[in-house]
Design a binder for these strands. Structure first.
Lengths: 262, 262
DNA sequence: GAGTGGTCTAGACCACTGT
DNA sequence: CAGTGGTCTAGACCACTCC
C-alpha cells in the first residue's frame, strides 16, 4: 500500500542520517540505483525528488547526485531594524564598517559582492495600496543582490520601493553609484529628515519562479520565503516597501516580541 | 529550449488569470488535455503539477482537476501575544468569549472544532537545548488541532511543551479535559505565578511530512511554514516551547517591530 | 567520447468517486 | 460500472560535465 518511491526515499533518508552516506559523497548513477532497488528510472527519480525538496541531496546535471552538507542557515532577525536605526546617525567611518547582511550572516564585507540597480517605475495596484498613494505614482525601484565572493548563488533577492518625489529631496538618493550607502536605507532616509517609527513584515511561502530558482541556486521542489517589509515613519506615512525573496532551505527568520509588564 | 511542460503550465496559468477558466470550474480530463496540447499524459501531469504547487488548482483523485478559488489567507500577527497577555488576568466570562485562533481568523467559536491531547514525554536534545534543561527532563506535551466545523483540514498543527515539574504546581494544568482553557496558555501560566516577558519566534519553511500533508489537506508540492515559539518569563526562564505547522499556501505571518525614538 | 542527469513518450494497471 | 486521477514501467533522445 505504501508507495514505492516513498519507501525508497525513506531508505535513502535513513542511510544519509545514519551516516552510511556522508556529506559530499556521490550517490551511484540513477540507472544503477534503479537496478539496486529493482525499480524503473522514473520511479527512482521520484524518490530522489523527495530528498531533493528536503535539501538532503544536490543534483548536478551531467555530474551526479550528492549528499548535501547540512546547509548553514542564515538568520534574519527583527532586531536588525533597531540596530540599523541606531547606526543611521553614526559617523560615516563607523557606518562603513559593516551592513545589515554582514550582521545577519556573520561574514565580513570582503567576503561579499554587492550589486545595486535603480530604476524609475509607476505604482501598480499592489504598491499603490501599500503606500496609500494613487496608482501610477512615480516610484524609485531599487534592486539589490548580495553574493558570497566565491560561490555563485545570491543570499536573497531584494527589491525596495520609495516614493520618487519624496526621496528626490536629496538627489544623491537617486543615484545608484552611491551604493552601497554606508548605514543603509535608514541612513539614506535620515538625510531627508525621515525617522522610522515601526516596521511591519508580512511573511509567506511559495514555489519560486524559474528566475528566482536560477538566481538563488534552488533545487527543484524547494520553496522561497517571501518577506514584504513596510517601513512607517514618525508621521505614520509608509516610506519604503521592500520585497525580500529568500531560499526556504537556508533561511531562518527570528522575531522577538517584547511584552508590557503587568 | 523552453521546457514543454513549462510552456503548457504558462498557457494554463494565463487562462486562469484571464478568467477563461473560472474558480471552481473543472478542467478537461488529463487524457483530453494531453491530446489538446499534443503531448503525453506524464508531461501534461508535470505541467499541472506546477499549478498544483502554486495553489492555482486542486486535484481530486477519481473526480478531476479544478480551478481553485483564491484561498482565504489566515493571518497570524505577533500582536496576538500582547493581546493574550492583556486577557490572561481578565474575568473568566470575558476570557471565554474568544481565543487566539478566532482572533486571527475572524471566525467565531461556534464555527470551530477544537481538540487537545496531553501526554508526558522526556526532553530530547533539541528541546533540552531550547529549555536549557538536561536531556531526559520530564515534559508535558500538548497537541492542539483546530478545524473549521464544516471543512475537514486543520488550520494548523500545534505542539506545545512545558516543563512538567513547573506546571505541576497546579494539577488542573495537567488535565486535558480542562481544554479549551479560557484565555489560553498565558492564563494557565498565570495560575502558577508566571508572567511572560518576551516571545521569540523562529520561522522556517520545508516540504510537509506525509502526515502533515494529510492533516492540513495539502496538495503535492505545497510547503509548510514552521514556527517555533519560545516564551520567556520575567525571570528569563524558558517556560514554553511550541511548534506550529501551517500550510504555506494559506498562511501569512505579520510581525510589527516598534523602534525607539531618536 | 563516455557517463551523467533532464525531458518526453506510450501505455499498463490500480485506486478513488459518483451514479 | 464508467470515468477520473495515481503509480509504475521501459526506453528514446537530449544536454551537460569532465577527461
Amino acid at each position: 500500500m505504501a508507495k514505492k518511491y516513498e519507501r525508497i526515499a525513506d531508505e535513502l533518508r535513513q542511510h544519509i542520517r545514519a551516516g552510511q552516506l556522508k556529506p559530499g559523497e556521490r550517490l551511484p548513477a540513477e540507472t544503477t540505483l534503479a537496478k539496486q532497488y529493482r525499480t524503473s528510472v522514473p520511479t527512482m527519480r521520484d524518490a530522489l525528488g523527495e530528498l531533493l525538496a528536503e535539501g538532503l541531496i544536490d543534483k548536478r546535471h551531467g555530474v551526479g547526485n550528492f549528499v548535501r552538507k547540512p546547509p548553514p542557515r542564515v538568520e534574519r532577525t527583527n532586531e536588525r531594524h533597531q540596530w540599523e536605526k541606531d547606526r543611521a546617525r553614526a559617523a560615516q567611518n563607523e557606518r562603513e564598517q559593516t551592513g545589515a547582511t554582514e550582521h545577519d550572516t556573520g561574514l565580513t564585507v570582503s567576503d561579499l559582492v554587492f550589486k545595486a540597480r535603480y530604476r524609475e517605475t509607476k505604482a501598480d495596484e499592489d504598491l499603490a495600496a501599500a503606500f496609500a498613494v494613487p496608482v501610477g505614482t512615480r516610484l524609485l525601484e531599487r534592486v539589490y543582490r548580495t553574493y558570497p565572493r566565491d560561490g555563485d548563488a545570491a543570499f536573497s533577492l531584494v527589491c525596495s520601493h520609495l516614493v520618487h518625489d519624496v526621496v528626490a529631496a536629496n538627489p544623491d538618493l537617486l543615484d545608484e553609484s552611491n551604493e552601497p550607502w554606508p548605514g543603509g536605507t535608514q541612513s539614506q532616509l535620515h538625510t531627508i529628515g525621515i525617522e522610522l517609527d515601526h516596521i511591519v513584515e508580512r511573511i509567506t511561502a511559495r514555489p519560486p519562479t524559474s528566475e528566482e530558482a536560477e538566481e538563488l541556486g534552488l533545487q527543484k521542489g524547494v520553496s522561497v520565503i517571501v518577506l514584504r517589509k513596510i517601513s512607517i515613519d514618525t508621521e505614520g506615512r509608509v516610506v519604503d516597501v521592500s520585497d525580500v525573496i529568500m531560499p526556504g532551505d537556508r533561511t531562518e527568520l527570528v522575531f522577538t516580541t517584547r511584552l508590557d509588564r503587568w
